[in-house]
Design a binder for these strands. Sequence first.
DNA 1: TATAGTACTTTCCTAAAGGAAAGCGAAATA
DNA 2: TATTTCGCTTTCCTTTAGGAAAGTACTATA
Lengths: 116, 116
Amino acid sequence: MANKIGYLSCLDTVKPVRDAIDVINGKWKLSIIISVMTGNERFTDIQGSIPGISPKVLAKELKDLEQHQLIKRVVIEDYPVKILYKPEPYADTLTPIIQALKVWGLTHRERIFSKA
Amino acid sequence: MANKIGYLSCLDTVKPVRDAIDVINGKWKLSIIISVMTGNERFTDIQGSIPGISPKVLAKELKDLEQHQLIKRVVIEDYPVKILYKPEPYADTLTPIIQALKVWGLTHRERIFSKA
DNA sequence: TATAGTACTTTCCTAAAGGAAAGCGAAATA
DNA sequence: TATTTCGCTTTCCTTTAGGAAAGTACTATA
């Protein structure tokens, strides 16, 4: 019954990475953030800019992102009432992640095509 | 019936980001890559280094990662047979993503704690 | 008056993710 | 001989993600 801890600890990386993934998980969240940061503010504009997203999913994810203070929902009391989605400053902190994923995605696609 | 395309296109970013997410999706893939890149090679070592992962999930994700050529499964014909998981060179290309997520996760956790 | 747009919600459904627990065949160890 | 270890697999079950389609309350426009 000797002490047996065979593995190398990697918790210092695994834990924060999982914290980040827990916020931006799912197929759609980063796309929505990209769209809003690009300047799309209206529900239908965001929906139009992201191929394949349904209104149900978009509504749900927008609420999620609002809770995490990555975007804010602004109600403009005009006639008719307008609703705008704007990026919060905190969303900017995601830029390095988005950039890294974009670069990787581009070279990955090249790799796939060149060997196909 | 005028032309109405109200939204700003962001496909040049959205598409590669989604390509990347399609490869490293799910709760566990990046953790497994981190563990293997840290030097864990045996099934039980990898499992031990990632809190909460079940053998079923680990086995499935290892197969996925092997298909994407991010790790390789090496069988060593000893007595007993040993099975090792090693990172492929391609896994290194994920380092910028992992770093960005790690940094973001760390500051996000600080942010949560400081306002709680 | 009829149609269209806006920002969703609702319902229904399927598929995938993932957790819990047990098992298993071979080999090593006590 | 009994137990433990390794690398899984199998079964069962619940949760979550997500797609399709329709609907809705309001307003604007033709």
